[in-house]
Design a protein around this nucleic acid. Structure first.
Lengths: 212, 212
DNA sequence: TAGATTGTTAATCGATTAACAATC
DNA sequence: TAGATTGTTAATCGATTAACAATC
């Protein structure tokens, strides 16, 4: 199998933003887009965009830029956004409702197939068409539905406990929205999403303006 | 005024995680906490924690670590989490419901005072005790309520338009949850929160496991 | 005391940016 | 042609990590 090239984490995080700009250009009827155009839109420098897009292997044309169609395909392939991935969401609260209703995920292959909760008031209902089930059914349903990703949106107190249930079910990827760094077996990957870190950044930026 | 020291963005983003661990230790009755303890909990190396905590100016004790009480105070002061900040939320959808109901923000000085929307079905109601008002009232209410932060959770199509309304109201800090890089006057700070970048990271991590 | 831990200075590592020839 | 843009190699910058004396 062809070894996929390695890209630095900051570069990977920028790719979705590039993709968004490129798709907009496509909808505007463009066939090519230059690194300069993308960079200007995102307040970056063009050399950074050029370097990041190097991973795609798509050859740009001098004076025109990159051909949009293969560029989109290549970025989506790199991100594995070209294949459907079935996800469960553990904790059927407000954040789960926000995430299941966010169209960007669905558009990029992430399909929520079930939500799990302990609250009997929630079980049996559904959020954005996703059925809410008892957490006791998790393992059974994961096998049945072939889910490969678990999104964790439970209160932090039960985060580790839920993570254990998830890993027992055979799921190897956890998107963790709790503020707990959960302990996982070595073969399980996870992405820690910390909303308070963004708030910290904003607070510090606000303060620094006054101290210039 | 004493010039506040500058800390790199990655360090600032780690501070909330440290704070969380330190507060847990405090609740467990500890008076001191070492960089080693924090690092182990977060799967980091102790030198990194030590370096980051250097910004606080709190002097640690050899063999014991840092005194918890002043350490917490100092981190909170650095992040400006020790003062109340009034925020409005623009777009009263699912994400707004999740954010206004997230206790971590409230605990760190972020108080939502009003939500704004264009949907007449939402206007007049409230989300987690926060009144939903017409976006037409935004400017007036910002002055009246002394809000200093706007959290932007509207559909991307209207993101720039809403940002314009926000900046006209005099607000100088925008926490942007849309996937649009909005254009802002130079004196307005913003924090761009991109949920798809986390999804990109998770997808790539999942893929790399199989290609080892 | 021995040894765990701190704080600081230096070294390393990795990401960003610069330089520039090649191209259409 | 002139000039905007690419792709690649080299230089710079900044964050992380290492080293180590000081301390309790």
């Amino acid at each position: 199998m062809l070894q996929k090239k390695i890209l630095a984490a900051p570069s990977i995080k920028r790719l979705p933003r590039y993709l968004h700009i490129i798709k907009q250009a496509q909808m505007d009827g463009a066939e090519y887009i230059s690194a300069t155009t993308i960079a200007n839109e995102l307040h970056l420098v063009s050399i950074q965009v050029r370097k990041d897009l190097g991973i795609t292997g798509i050859i740009g044309k001098p004076r025109k830029g990159y051909p949009i169609l293969p560029l989109i395909e290549s970025i989506e392939r790199f991100l594995n956004w070209d294949t459907e991935k079935k996800a469960i969401i553990v904790g059927a609260g407000n954040l789960a409702t926000a995430l299941t209703g966010y169209p960007e995920f669905f558009n990029h292959g992430l399909k929520f197939v079930a939500a799990f909760d302990t609250d009997t008031k929630k079980i049996g209902k559904n959020i954005h068409g996703v059925p809410v089930l008892s957490i006791k059914q998790l393992s059974e349903k994961v096998s049945e539905l072939n889910a490969t990703i678990a999104v964790l949106t439970v209160p932090s107190k039960v985060a580790q406990e839920c993570a254990n249930i998830i890993t027992k079910s055979g799921i190897k990827a956890i998107w963790n929205f709790t503020n707990i760094k959960i302990k996982l077996p070595a073969d399980v990957v996870s992405q820690f999403e910390d909303l308070t870190s963004g708030y910290a950044m904003l607070s510090v930026k606000m303060d620094s303006i006054h101290n210039d």
